[in-house]
Nucleic acid binder design. Structure first.
Length: 844
RNA sequence: GGGCGUGUGGCGGAACGGCAGACGCAGUUGACUUAGGAUCAAAAAGAUGCAGGUUCGAAUCCUGCCAUGCCUACCA
C-alpha cells in the first residue's frame, strides 16, 4: 500500500484534517463498544478457570455528571484491569453507585424532585457517560445502594451487628450541623469546625444516637496483616486510632456537700505523679456541678457556657492562651495525699480519656502554660543529668529528660518506659489505679436525622422496649413521598404509615426508628455484594465470596484513609467474627490515585472551572482522552489543569494518528508468510521490540502509565524509521510481530483503536484478549555497549565496545583511546573504576 | 506545633548512586500548500530550590535551610 498523501481532506473540529479512510475515533469506538457489550467480553463469570483478579475502584456518588476526576480515576483503574486480564487473569471489575446521601435530599428540598428519581436519573446519565470510556466495567454486577434489594442487606447487617452486641444506643454530645439539620461523625467535621458538606459551623447537641463499637476492634485494626497498603495510609489510620499506653489513676474529690467522688484520670506519665500541682476537668464533665462550691457557681457557669458556645476551631486552637476557672474544691493526690485545686479548662476534652487530667506543669508544656497563667506551683520531679533546673526560672516544660527527683522511693530512676512501669505497679499495688491503654478512636456514630438513607431496622414498643425488626420483614422500605420540614428530625417522623407499626413481640402498636444510617455503612460492604449482586435470599453466597474476595487491587483517593477504609476494615473483621466471611482484611493492595486540580485548587462546581470530559471525548475520542489523562504524569500524582494542559492532548492524537498510519500503511495480514529475512534490520527490530516489552510491562505493573506511553511512542517512532530505511523488512515475520506487539502493548490504554487495527490486520481474535508478550532478554541484548569514560567523574568520551568484553580489555581500550590518552597526558592514573557494561572512571 | 511528600528547560514530565533533561507540548527553521491553526522533516535550548557532607562519581544517599502541597492538630 502506498502512502496516500494530499488526498482530499475533511475537517473534523479540533482533531484537524483527516486523511480519507483515516482514523475516525467516533466510528470505531462506538462499533467496538457495541461488539464487546454483545459478546459479554467484560463480564467476569464465576466459573472461569483462570485465576481471579478482583480489580476494584471506589464507587462514585451519583452527582449527575461524570467529571474529569472520575475519568482520570476510572481510566487508570481500567488500564490496570485490562493489563491484568492480558496477563491471564479472570478480572472482575465492577462499578456501582454510592447512592444514598444528602445531595439527593437537598435537590428534593430545593427543586421538589423525588430524591429517588433524581438519583436514578443521575445514575442513568453517569452510566451512559461511563460507557463512552470503553472500560471493562462489568455492568451485570452494578449495585446502587439506594435500591431496596441492596439496602435490605444493609439493614440486615445492622441487625447482625446488633445481635453481636456491636450496635448500641447512647446519649451523646454530637456534632450537629444546623444547616443540614443532621448529626455528623467526627470525620465529617473539618478541622476548622465546619461541616464537610455545606461549610456551616458545627454545633454540639446531646442526642440519643446509634453507635457501632468500632473501638472494640481498635487493637485489631492496628494490625494490617498481609496487606500492601501505602505506608502513609497505614500511618494515618494508626494515628487516627491513637493507641497510647499509660495508667488510670483514681483521684478523689470532696464535693461542696461533703460527698466524696472518685475522679479517675488517664495519664501516659504516671511517673510524674509526685509533680501534680493542680487538677483539670473538662467543662462538660459530669462532676463539675457537684464539685463547684457555691461562691464559684456563677463564674463556673459562665465559663461552661462560653466553652460550649465555642466552635471546634476556637476551642482547639493551640496558640490561644490557656483559660480556666477554679471551681472551689480539691482532689487528693492518692500517692502523696496532697490537696490539689480543681480547675475547669477547655483544653481538656470530654471525649478523650476520662475528661479529667492531672496537671504536671514541670513536665507537660500545656500544663506549664496553664500553671504560669494561674500562678500555680511548678514542682520538678525530673532533673536533667548534667545540670540542675530551678522551677521558678523555667520557661518551658522539661519533657523526657533526666532522672526522677522529689518522688520518694523512685528518686534516681532514669526517664524511660521501665520507670513508668514501676510507678504503674506501685499504683496498682496500692489499689489506686491500673495500667490502661487508651485510644483516640471513638465509637462510630451512625444515626442520621435524614430521609435519604437506609432505615435503621429497629422498633420502639411501649411494652417490650427496643425490638429489632425480624429478618423476614426486611427491608424496611423507605417511602417515596416525603415532606421536608426544617425541624431537625428525620422527615420520616411525619409519615404515619412509616412510623406506626406493630411490635414484632407483642403485636401491640409501636413506633419505628426514624433515623437512617450513615452512608459509610452502605459502602462498608458493597465490595462483597459485587460478588453476588442479584442474590435475593442472602447478601451474598458465601461460596462466591470465597471465589472473589479479598479485593486484589483497590484504587481510590487518599481522602478516605480514616473513614471508608477504616470502617470497611472494621466491618470485615466483625463479619469475620460472626463467621460470615473467612478473611479479616478486605483490601489486599491499595493504591491512591492523585487528584486533578484546577489551577492549583480542588475543582468544585461552586468555583466554576470544571472540565467536561464529554466534550473532550466527542472531539478527540475516548482512546485519546484515556491516553492523554494517563500521560499527564504518574497516576499517583494527579495533575493540575490549566490553560496549557489540554495542549498535551494534541500530542496524543498525533501519536494515535501515526500508529494508525503505520499499521495501515505497513502492517499486513499476519497470515501471510513466515519468512525470516537475512538482514541486519531484523535483529534491530527485535531488540527494539523486546526492550519495549520489558519497559512497558514493568511500567504497567507499577501504575506508571505515563512512561508506558513514552515507551510506546519511542517504539512506534523507531518502527517508522526502520521501515523507511529498509522497506523490505515488511516482508518478514519479525515486522509482523513487531506491529502486533505495538498493538498489544497499547491495548490497555487505547482499547478501541488497537482492536480496529488488530482485526483489520487479519486477526480474528480480540487484541484485548491477547496475552502480554513475553520479554526475551536474548533478543533484547545489544551487540555493542556504550562505555562512558570519565576522568575524575567527568565524562570525556564514549566508546562502543562489544558486549562480552572483559574488564582488562575495556581498561586497555579506554586508556589508549585518543581523547583519553591526551587528557591523561603524563599523569599516572591513581585508580581506574570499572562498572561492567557501563563506564570507566579514571581517577588522576 | 507535629507527620508525610514534592522542588529538574518556557510547560507536563524522564532518569537501578554512573551519558541529566527520555517522551510529549510550545517555540524556531524548512517542505508541501491559495492558506496553515493540518501534515512531514530538521535543528535548537537549558544544568536538577539553596548551603554543606558521604562517594572515584550525587537529581538520586545524609544534615541544615528555603519554597510548596497534603494530612493532622491542646489526645493528657
Amino acid at each position: 500500500m502506498e502512502i496516500q498523501e494530499n488526498e482530499q481532506t475533511e475537517t473534523t473540529g479540533r482533531g484537524g484534517n483527516k486523511r480519507a479512510g483515516g482514523y475516525n475515533p467516533k466510528e470505531i469506538e462506538q462499533k467496538w463498544q457495541e461488539v464487546w457489550e454483545q459478546s459479554g467480553a467484560n463480564h467476569a463469570t464465576d466459573d472461569d478457570p483462570r485465576p481471579k483478579f478482583y480489580n476494584l475502584v471506589m464507587f462514585p456518588y451519583p452527582s449527575g455528571d461524570l467529571h474529569i476526576g472520575h475519568w482520570y480515576n476510572f481510566t487508570g483503574v481500567d488500564v490496570y484491569g485490562r493489563f491484568m486480564r492480558m496477563n491471564g487473569y479472570n478480572v472482575m471489575q465492577p462499578l456501582g453507585f454510592d447512592a444514598f446521601g444528602l445531595p439527593a435530599e437537598n435537590a428534593a428540598i430545593k427543586r421538589g424532585v423525588q430524591a429517588r428519581k433524581w438519583t436514578l436519573s443521575n445514575i442513568e446519565n453517569m452510566r451512559r457517560q461511563l460507557k463512552t470510556m470503553g472500560g471493562i466495567w462489568d455492568w451485570e454486577r452494578e449495585v446502587a445502594t439506594c435500591l431496596p434489594d441492596y439496602y435490605k442487606w444493609t439493614e440486615w447487617f445492622f441487625l447482625k451487628l446488633y445481635e453481636a452486641g456491636l450496635a448500641y444506643r447512647a446519649k451523646a454530645p454530637v456534632n450537629w450541623c444546623p444547616n443540614d439539620q443532621t448529626v455528623l461523625a467526627n470525620e465529617q467535621v473539618l478541622a476548622n469546625g465546619t461541616c464537610e458538606r455545606c461549610g456551616a459551623e458545627v454545633a454540639k447537641r446531646d442526642l440519643e444516637q446509634w453507635f457501632f463499637k468500632i473501638t472494640a476492634y481498635a487493637d485489631r485494626l492496628l494490625e494490617f496483616k498481609d496487606i500492601e497498603w501505602p505506608e502513609k495510609t497505614v500511618t494515618m489510620q494508626r494515628n487516627w486510632i491513637g493507641r497510647s499506653e499509660g495508667a488510670r489513676v483514681n483521684f478523689t474529690a470532696e464535693g461542696s456537700d461533703g460527698t466524696v467522688h472518685a475522679v479517675p484520670v488517664f495519664t501516659t506519665r504516671p511517673d510524674t505523679i509526685y509533680g501534680v500541682t493542680f487538677f483539670l476537668l473538662a467543662p462538660e464533665h459530669a462532676l463539675v456541678a457537684q464539685l463547684t462550691t457555691p461562691d464559684k457557681q456563677a463564674e463556673v457557669a459562665a465559663y461552661v457556657a462560653k466553652a460550649r458556645g465555642e466552635t471546634e476551631i476556637e476551642r482547639q486552637s493551640t496558640d490561644k492562651a490557656k483559660t480556666g476557672v477554679f471551681i472551689g474544691s480539691y482532689v487528693t493526690n492518692p500517692i502523696t495525699g496532697g490537696k490539689i485545686p480543681i480547675y475547669i479548662t477547655d483544653y481538656v476534652l470530654m471525649g478523650y480519656g476520662t475528661g479529667a487530667v492531672m496537671g504536671v506543669p514541670a513536665h507537660d508544656q500545656r500544663d506549664f502554660e496553664f500553671a504560669r497563667t494561674f500562678n500555680l506551683p511548678v514542682v520538678l520531679v525530673y532533673q536533667p543529668d548534667d545540670r540542675e533546673i530551678n522551677a521558678d526560672e523555667m520557661t518551658e516544660a522539661l519533657v523526657h529528660e533526666g532522672h526522677v527527683v522529689n518522688s520518694g522511693p523512685f528518686n534516681g530512676l532514669p526517664d524511660n518506659a521501665e520507670t513508668v512501669k514501676k510507678f504503674i505497679d506501685y499504683i496498682a499495688e496500692k489499689g489506686l489505679g491500673e495500667a490502661k491503654v487508651n485510644y483516640r478512636l471513638r465509637d462510630w456514630l451512625i444515626s442520621r436525622q435524614r430521609y435519604w438513607g437506609a432505615p435503621i431496622p429497629m422498633i420502639y414498643c411501649p411494652t417490650d422496649g427496643l425490638v429489632p425488626v425480624p429478618e423476614e420483614q426486611l427491608p424496611v422500605i423507605l417511602p417515596e413521598e416525603v415532606e421536608f420540614k426544617p425541624t431537625g428530625e428525620s422527615p420520616l417522623n411525619y409519615i404515619p404509615e412509616f412510623v406506626n407499626t406493630t411490635c414484632p413481640k407483642c403485636g401491640g402498636p409501636a413506633r419505628r426508628e426514624t433515623d437512617t444510617m450513615d452512608t459509610f455503612m452502605c459502602s462498608s460492604w458493597y465490595f462483597l455484594r459485587y460478588a453476588d449482586p442479584k442474590n435475593a435470599a442472602q447478601p451474598f453466597d458465601p461460596e462466591l465470596i470465597k471465589r472473589w474476595m479479598p479485593v486484589d487491587q483497590y484504587t481510590g483517593g487518599p481522602e478516605h484513609a480514616t473513614m471508608h477504609l477504616l470502617y470497611a476494615r472494621f466491618f470485615t473483621k466483625a463479619l469475620y467474627d460472626m463467621g460470615i466471611v473467612s478473611f479479616e482484611e478486605p483490601f489486599k493492595r491499595l493504591f491512591h490515585q492523585g487528584m486533578i486540580l484546577s489551577e492549583g485548587r480542588k475543582m468544585s462546581k461552586s468555583k466554576g472551572k470544571t472540565i467536561a470530559p464529554d466534550r473532550l471525548v466527542s472531539e478527540n475520542g475516548a482512546d485519546a482522552v484515556r491516553a492523554f489523562l494517563m500521560f499527564l504524569g504518574p497516576f499517583e500524582k494527579g495533575a493540575d489543569w490549566n490553560d496549557k494542559t489540554e495542549q498535551l492532548l494534541v500530542g496524543i492524537s498525533r501519536f494515535l494518528n501515526r500508529v494508525w498510519g503505520l499499521v495501515n500503511d505497513y502492517g499486513k495480514s499476519s497470515e501471510n508468510n513466515e519468512i525470516t529475512l537475512a538482514t541486519s534490520v531484523e535483529p534491530r527490530l527485535r531488540r527494539a521490540q523486546h526492550k519495549t516489552i520489558q519497559r512497558v510491562v514493568a511500567d504497567y505493573g507499577s501504575f506508571q502509565f505515563n512512561t508506558v506511553l513514552s515507551g510506546l511512542m519511542e517504539y512506534s517512532n523507531s518502527l517508522q524509521k526502520l521501515i523507511e530505511e529498509a522497506p523490505a523488512v515488511q516482508q518478514g515475520v519479525a515486522w509482523d510481530e513487531a506491529i502486533d506487539t505495538l498493538l498489544i502493548l497499547l491495548a490497555p490504554l487505547c482499547p478501541h483503536i488497537t482492536e480496529e487495527l488488530w482485526q483489520s490486520k487479519g486477526h480474528r481474535s480480540s487484541v484485548n484478549e491477547q496475552p502480554m508478550p513475553l520479554f526475551n532478554p536474548t533478543l533484547a541484548a545489544d551487540e555493542l555497549v556504550t562505555i562512558v569514560v570519565q576522568i575524575n567523574g567527568k565524562v570525556r568520551d564514549r566508546l562502543d565496545l562489544p558486549i562480552g568484553i572483559s574488564e582488562e580489555e575495556v581498561k586497555a581500550t579506554v586508556l589508549f583511546a585518543p581523547k583519553i590518552a591526551t587528557a591523561i597526558g603524563e599523569s599516572i592514573p591513581r585508580k581506574v573504576i570499572y562498572v561492567p557494561g557501563k563506564l570507566v572512571n579514571i581517577v588522576l
